[in-house]
């Protein structure tokens, strides 16, 4: 079981470097850099951190095939792999509809687009040509596993079938168990291929639970808006609340999101609370079905302390550090 952290490039580079060094020292397996057009570029941030760290793996994205051409994704990944051989991972997903809409894209045929992107990228990284003129004139140093980020059942099924790995985005226990079953079933029915299953869970740690919950709310809102409608119904989310959250998120009105988001809803989609709270919640996750857990942003009001606290919790739970 591996443990990683997600860093959100809304911070200045030097801060992200401090966090990445902290994660590396504490024995986390990887830092994943999330991609949102309104933050710093995950590609540039990955490049910076590839040069400023030594051992920790760096996960690029999630990149989506609407804003990024698959040839460009392969180019990014192969270039990065030259800077940090064997430490680069790429994740591809369908993006979230609110963000895509703000960029002027419509999320059409997400399954087909993601599958096409993954196959194209993998072909290019292997040194082959997906078409006559599409190619990379250089090879990545070391393997670059391609992960598929997935939430909905069809995307999870696709991810298990075509990904080297799957990034499952959910902290809600019933959803997570269902999701993992779909991925595992899909992978085993695809010739029993090995697929690395990482679960990303929004995390916020602070000794005062209220502060931890408050910090995670904007992140939960973004995840909530990207959830399949049937899941939102099961969570009992009212349409009016969704509409208000959608408007607030699209305008970047995060204080409004804080006001709108009920605590129990935030808690149902995140690990938020004190280190003890989070450790308790972690112990209830179906860890035996997972290969790794990514503590997703924000980590907490004090991310560096949160990483330390999480490490302590992991040691208590497993008797060892994040690399376990």
């Amino acid at each position: 079981m591996r443990f990683s952290v997600e860093l959100v490039p809304k911070e200045p580079f030097w801060r992200l470097r401090v966090y990445a060094i902290t994660a590396e020292r504490l024995g986390y397996s990887a830092v994943w850099l999330s991609e949102h057009f309104f933050n710093r570029s995950s590609v540039v941030t990955s490049t910076y951190l590839a040069l400023r760290t030594r051992t920790i793996s760096i996960g690029l994205g999630v990149l989506n095939p609407y804003a990024f051409n698959p040839l460009t994704m392969a180019q990014f990944a192969a270039s990065l792999a030259e800077l940090a051989p064997g430490r680069i991972m790429l994740s591809i997903g369908a993006g979230d509809p609110v963000t895509l809409s703000a960029m002027g894209y419509e999320q059409r045929e997400p399954l087909r687009r993601v599958e096409e992107a993954v196959r194209t990228v993998r072909t290019l990284l292997a040194g082959d040509r997906p078409s006559v003129s599409a190619r990379l004139d250089f090879r990545p140093q070391g393997p670059v596993p391609v992960y598929v980020a997935a939430q909905g059942m069809k995307m999870l099924e696709l991810a298990g079938r075509i990904g080297d790995g799957v990034l499952v985005n959910s902290a809600n226990l019933p959803f997570l168990e269902e999701s993992l079953k779909v991925v595992r079933r899909s992978a085993s029915s695809s010739g029993g291929k090995r697929v690395d299953v990482e679960v990303e869970v929004l995390t916020s740690v602070h000794e005062e639970r209220a502060k931890a919950v408050k910090t995670v709310k904007p992140y939960v809102a973004v995840v909530l808006l990207g959830l399949p409608g049937s899941w939102r119904e099961r969570l009992g989310v009212r349409e009016e609340l969704l509409a208000d959250l959608r408007e607030a998120v699209s305008r970047g009105e995060w204080l409004r999101v804080h006001e709108l988001m009920p605590d129990d809803l935030a808690l149902s989609l995140s690990l938020a609370g004190s280190g003890v709270d989070v450790a308790r919640a972690l112990s209830e996750l179906p860890l035996e079905m997972m290969d790794g857990l990514v503590f997703g942003g924000p980590l907490g009001p004090y991310p560096r302390r949160a990483m330390l606290e999480l490490r302590r919790s992991l040691s208590e739970l497993f008797g060892k550090g994040p690399r376990g």
Partner: peptide, 23 residues
Amino acid sequence: LLDVVLTTYSHHLIDPAEGESLA
């Protein structure tokens, strides 16, 4: 002190080169 620097909203008052020195 480090946690204050890492979480202040006034980080625009810190020159990137100073931030790099800190890192």
